[in-house]
Write a protein that binds this DNA or RNA. Structure first.
Length: 574
RNA sequence: UGGGGCGUCGGCAAGUGGUCAAGCCACCGGUUUUUGGUGCCGGUAUCGUAGGUUCGAAUCCUACCGCCCCAGCCA
């Protein structure tokens, strides 16, 4: 991971590594790994871990392995492997030839298990799952030894081999480590090493009837690959003694060191694969890549950039305290990145027609517009202007409040890159009173958006020529959950699903250049936010846009605060 | 009542005995602005609590308090 952006201070893992390098531990090598289980899509929390592990390898000139922890055929699928690889690569990391599968180690793992049995460090247990639980004891009382604990080595070997051959039904026997049933650490009370699961594995097929447990597989896989620093999340802290036991007993040369850090929590977001799967299965979302999902594929489709995610990861830091990061930080990182990169473009999402009465009816002018004022190298483009244009409905008010400097009767505003216009008349539906269109006059001297007399025009609106506009759907996304900590109150996170996290706007008026938008391409819709052509639903010449994030909007915020204050006053005066 | 962790500004997070307790996000002011965007300037903590050690402690010691994780043949 990059240094903490401004200060270059090291996080606690970097400190450990630098000390290890100083002491020439592992000959100064740094090898990390990202070890997903292929049973779901990666999410932003995984991104933190990916950036950490690959970042560490980059920083210390080592390498980072991508290893699929595929020891449980009941939950894992090929589809997930594909998506995981895509997501890691999209984030900008390259594992090169170091793509591994725990299932590739099944033979070696089996042999080490045999070795443990021969050393008297493992035994085959015939207790039922219920009995095992009873024998384990509780948090405050020690467990007791299984009657099978002193089974002879010969008998253990025989039974284990027959487990492998598939002679027994699932659950009949279990290979357990012989450690200490009285350990205050429950993980050390003779943990399971191998269970019988007569099930087809997505990679090894029907070759195996027994599968190794995580606590056995993980440390040994690390050791096999020469991992020096095995970085995982806090909940594995208790497993560390077992991790070290396994590495030690295996006799492998490299002794990887497990280091735990706090996983990412984000407010307004859930980060559990189980819960995300539930959203997919119950069709609360369109799929794993629904733009509201915190999955990497979801935020990618939403329009987030890999750079912004990496920046986010570097800013949140790495530590051991359980913490919840403010979603606003993620949005900030995104805006900062897109501000420099996204082409500016004009799109009217909620159109109101403006007729410029003193502008020739059949005239079209091409107005020159900056593609990005932050980067002149992005050049300019020409935008057609004509007698009738659309502006946003909320850029006009018949009876404006104080400090409203958009269009209103008698007021003059600037149409960005075009002309000053002054409101002269409001045309309403005689029946409903609804505003149908607004008539204005323009100042021909203000072409391009300024005048020689230098008069100040405070309001500037974006616009689209009615004649040249093309229509498209735009999707507005907002927080998926209405509470910061979904499920906090009722215990069910789905109760906090926001009912308006997706708003589809039909027939938005877009400037013609947008017709050519490429799926996945990001734009700044001037004054509205950053939008991205949807990579699934866009068709050639007919893009659909997703709002990635809105612009910061101090005016809207002022309005909200004012409304809130009024509400409070109303309540008080009652 | 067992074991393992964690407690520094509203949210992250530096700091590991010695000038004013970094920085970022958020928030609040001001300024610039052909995006009420961006940029720029400024503002906002005495470190879970209570004792102790010391000339001096967020940093050391003691005792409390609070929060998280662990009793899958899941990872």
């Amino acid at each position: 991971m990059e240094d903490n952006k401004s200060t270059g201070t090291l996080n606690f893992i970097e400190k450990i590594i630098e000390k290890d390098i100083e002491n020439n531990k592992n000959e100064g090598k740094v090898v990390t790994r990202f070890p997903p289980e292929p049973n779901g899509y990666l999410h932003i929390g995984h991104a933190k871990s990916i950036c950490l592990n690959f970042g560490l390898a980059e920083k210390y000139k080592g390498r980072c392995h991508l290893r699929f922890d595929d020891t449980n055929p009941a939950k894992e699928e090929i589809e997930y492997i594909k998506s995981i690889k895509e997501d890691v690569a999209w984030l900008g990391f390259d594992w090169g030839k170091h793509e591994y599968y725990a299932s590739d180690y099944f033979d070696r793992l089996y042999n080490i298990a045999l070795k443990l049995i021969k050393k008297g460090k493992a035994y085959v247990d015939s207790l039922t799952p219920e009995e095992i639980r009873e024998y384990r004891g509780t948090l405050t009382s020690p467990g007791k030894n299984s009657p099978d604990r002193e089974r002879s080595v010969e008998e253990n070997i025989d039974l284990f081999e027959r487990m492998k051959k598939g002679e027994f039904e699932d659950g009949k026997y279990l290979l357990r480590a012989k450690i200490d049933m009285a350990s205050p650490n429950l993980n050390m009370r003779d943990p399971a090493l191998y269970r019988i699961k007569r099930m087809t594995h997505h990679r090894t097929g029907d070759m195996w009837c027994i599968y190794p447990m995580y606590d056995f597989t993980h440390p040994l896989s690390d050791a096999f690959e020469g991992i020096t620093h095995s970085v995982c999340t806090l909940e594995f802290e208790d497993h560390r003694p077992l991790y070290e036991w396994a590495v030690e007993e295996s006799g492998e040369k490299i002794k990887p060191q497990q280091i735990e850090f706090a996983r990412l929590n984000l407010n307004y977001t859930i980060m559990s694969k189980r819960k995300l799967l539930e959203l997919v299965e119950k069709e609360d979302v369109s799929g794993w890549d629904d733009p509201r999902m915190p999955t990497i594929s979801g935020i990618r489709r939403r329009g987030y950039t890999p750079e912004s995610i990496r920046d986010f990861a570097s800013r949140i830091g790495v530590a051991k305290s359980n913490s919840t990061v403010d979603f606003a930080l993620l949005e900030h990182c995104l805006r900062e990145d897109l501000n420099m990169k996204a082409q500016r473009v004009m799109a009217v999402l909620d159109p109101l027609k403006i007729v410029i009465t003193n502008y020739p009816e059949d005239k079209t002018e091409m107005m020159e517009a900056d593609n990005n004022p932050e980067d002149i190298n992005m050049g300019k483009r020409m935008v057609p202007f004509s007698r009738e244009v659309y502006i946003e409905k909320d850029d006009f008010m018949e009876n404006p409040p104080k400090k409203y400097f958009r269009l209103s009767p008698g007021k003059e505003i600037r149409l960005k890159h075009a002309y000053y216009i002054t409101c002269t008349e409001i045309i309403k539906d005689p029946g409903t009173g609804e505003i149908l269109e607004v008539h204005c006059t323009y100042d021909p001297e203000s072409r391009g958006g300024g005048t020689a007399d230098g008069r100040k025009v405070r309001g500037t609106s974006h616009w689209v020529s009615a004649f040249h506009a093309f229509e498209a759907d735009v999707r507005l996304y907002s927080h998926f959950f209405k509470s910061e900590n979904p499920g906090d109150v009722t215990g069910n996170f789905r109760d906090d699903l926001s009912e308006n996290s997706l708003e589809v706007l039909r027939g938005c008026k877009l400037e013609p250049s947008l017709k050519e938008a490429v799926p996945g391409q990001s734009f700044q819709f001037l004054r509205k936010g950053y939008f991205c052509a949807d990579s699934v639903d866009s068709k050639p010449g007919l893009p659909v846009f997703n709002r990635t994030v809105s612009m910061r909007d101090t005016w809207a915020k002022l309005q909200r605060d004012a409304a809130k204050n009024k509400e409070h006053k109303d309540i008080k005066s009652r």
